[in-house]
Design a protein around this nucleic acid. Structure first.
Lengths: 193, 193
DNA sequence: ATGCACATGTAAGCTGTTACATGATTTC
DNA sequence: GAAATCATGTAACAGCTTACATGTGCAT
């Protein structure tokens, strides 16, 4: 019963890229996966503890001058085994959830200006995301050229960034078009009325 | 504490389009909102009951020959008021969640063929969705022309379908490109090895 | 006979969010 | 002095999914 805990395997995956603290993991998620994955502290810390108890991770407490002590977690061989098992399993279908689209469907009787505001606000956020991904992709290209060699996973990271960039671009174009359509309708009805 | 119940307002919204049974609501969601919203019976039935108790909906039991009895719910004025309040409120940011992209990021050491399989499977599902949306958009256009008039919300429905169609198209193109890239890398490493 | 569509519900229990709690250090 | 960053956690509770439970009518 109840769905499978994805945080477990997400943490194993992130830690398979290198040892990290709970704080690092959150940051890593926000900076790299925000487009398609999020985790929060209230999930991360208890899960790390649990994974350590199960022997999938091991903990080392680091003290660095001028910083609070950190609990850094390393993935164990057992952890890597569970990760690889999960990687081969079929994945859940992607989930896209938009409260804005839902509201839009029911908004025929609310002031259009309100809907336009919502769309503009969402579009603004996307604009920043789009720039971030574009810059990220350029960085990846430049790093690759500068280092005269490929890191083993650079093509995977780039593919993921490309999808994010294009989805966001598609969204922005749709937002602009839809905002314009709604504005035209507003002025039309004002002309008539 | 704990997040806001979105099912309540989703049901109010759907019932604002016309009276429906719990079964109808589920079907309506699956057929119209699946791209960005889902509901399931275990959420729908208790929520309908609760909304009725609060006076936001009213129930009528319908018996039709050859069919099991249905509980059809109508939205009340109080219900409409709560719906309109919610429509004006700022919405949560959209959520996109993809276990496939997450796995992809960690898949540098698993057989590429396994990743390709996953991508091809996902792409196949999208292909069907894409065709469905394309046909749906054509239908909406034709209906509009045939009826020589616009229903008040047709432009909203069409906008939503357009976004879905384009997002799916963008995804399919990315899947194809990514699958090809991975296949090339597989044959490259075979040439070298 | 088998499966699909119609039709309504409940129980269990993990998941995930929000809020709370605490404190050092650096930067403006 | 205020704000941001670094850093780790817990409590409470609503939300959401999965599985279970039950039954009719129609089509192949």
């Amino acid at each position: 019963m109840a769905r499978k805990n994805k945080t477990r395997t997400a943490l194993l995956g992130i830690l398979s890229l290198g040892p990290k603290s709970g704080y690092d993991i959150k940051k890593f998620c926000d900076e790299n996966f925000a487009f398609f994955w999020t985790e929060n502290y209230a999930q991360i810390y208890p899960t790390l503890k649990q994974l350590e108890e199960e022997g999938l991770l091991c903990k080392e407490t680091e003290t660095r001058p001028g910083n609070p002590p950190r609990n850094v977690y390393y993935i164990t061989d057992t952890g890597r085994a569970e990760l690889n098992e999960w990687l081969l399993l079929p994945n859940d279908p992607m989930v896209f959830r938009s409260e804005l689209l839902l509201k839009m469907r029911f908004s025929q009787d609310v002031p259009i200006s309100n809907l336009i505001e919502k769309l503009e606000k969402a579009r603004y956020v996307y604009q920043n995301d789009y720039q971030a991904f574009t810059e990220r992709l350029i960085d990846l290209h430049l790093t690759e050229i500068a280092e005269h060699r490929e890191k083993p996973d650079v093509h995977l990271v780039m593919a993921i960034c490309k999808l994010a960039e294009r989805m966001i671009k598609t969204s922005i174009e749709w937002y602009d078009e839809t905002i314009e359509m709604l504005k035209e309708r507003t002025s039309d009805s004002q002309d008539k009325g």
